[in-house]
Amino acid sequence: MMSQVFLATALALVLLIFLTLIRALSGPTVLDRIVGVNMIGSKTTVLLLLIGLIYEAMPMFIDIALAYAFLNFIATIGACKYFRRIKKVHLEDDLPTKIEASV
């Protein structure tokens, strides 16, 4: 009974990961993509824990999830440090007009 709940939750998370991928792929600036990838990473951490519960191999998957959480954080910080120096990420020329149209 509980493993079905975990399975359903994991499926919902996979669906949400695909939705977040839309933002990561289409985000107007590079920083939008970083936010998208960061969110995908946090969902993946939970997904790894759920996989561990479903296959009853928790002691193994908990370490993987822990490492993934650390890596996700460090990757975000590193990417931010890098793009803070690169000044040419203005890829959002069309953004203000789009908002004006929708208001």
């Binding site: 959480a69 954080f73 975000t76 910080i77 931010c80 440090k81 793009f83």
Partner: peptide, 24 residues
């Protein structure tokens, strides 16, 4: 993991915002 996430997530948000402000 919970403890680490609750500290790391605002820090990451802050880093991204700072980068966005510097980049313009």
């Amino acid at each position: 993991i919970v403890f680490f996430i609750s500290m790391a997530s605002p820090t990451a948000t802050h880093a991204i915002t700072k980068a966005a402000l510097v980049v313009g």
